[in-house]
Design a protein around this nucleic acid. Sequence first.
DNA 1: CGCAAGGTTCGACCACTGTCAAACTTCGAT
DNA 2: ATCGAAGTTTGACAGTGGTCGAACCTTGCG
Lengths: 125, 125
Amino acid sequence: MLPEVDTTMTAAARTGRRDRVPPHPDMSEIGLQQVLEALVDPVRRRIVAELYAAGEDLACGTIDLPVSKSTATHHFHVLREAGLIRQHYAGTSRMNALRREEFDARFPGLLRAVVDAHGGDGAAE
Amino acid sequence: MLPEVDTTMTAAARTGRRDRVPPHPDMSEIGLQQVLEALVDPVRRRIVAELYAAGEDLACGTIDLPVSKSTATHHFHVLREAGLIRQHYAGTSRMNALRREEFDARFPGLLRAVVDAHGGDGAAE
DNA sequence: CGCAAGGTTCGACCACTGTCAAACTTCGAT
DNA sequence: ATCGAAGTTTGACAGTGGTCGAACCTTGCG
């Protein structure tokens, strides 16, 4: 289909993807073990807490983390695999959002409890 | 009081301790990090879940774990240090109980959320 | 086109933690 | 006094996971 390649289009547009979107697991595939392993890391918990507080999509860069870019990528990956966040690209930036309702349906009260405790604890914002 | 030494008494009784009691941290000293590190281990979560279900003190031996005794000791130690359980000796056995109310006051909803999720998840009881 | 910005992938490294066996301690009972 | 049961302590070992730098890949823009 569409044999003529329009070079003015971006690669994403050419392939029919407005936003590249990495694979997200279904909530039913997520286990508690995985979730706790994700939340046990302070950096990841900080990400979750900020997304929770923001209540909307945040670009990666918006959240400043005390680690290198490659490590940050790693953390976002873990959070995504644990069903905690949803990611999609917008230009060169990656947007992140909490999968709040979904997650709460699967693990009622857990996210709230952790974020609350995180705030009252050594949040160091 | 009672100055006459009754040799029929146990050493614990003679020294005025009915039960030896290891040091327990105050809830205010407990951090979320510590708690999550404690709960992230499946064996420890299993212990917590069983104590939660039992609702009363359980001897170490009552809870059968898929690990050696020394490892079990380690796990109970971690749980105690994280403020999750209270321990005391009764004879040669160690009794364990959840510090439920206290813990819930410090981290509202957390224990409940984790135990609930644990049950619905790969509890493998 | 060519370049810079923002992320990703890859390898390597290091600290931490769960695990066990062996030796030791303490209590209860014989 | 002695033995067995129940835990503890210690030391060692292996696997895992967070960390980084370097090289690479896209996208947006001049």
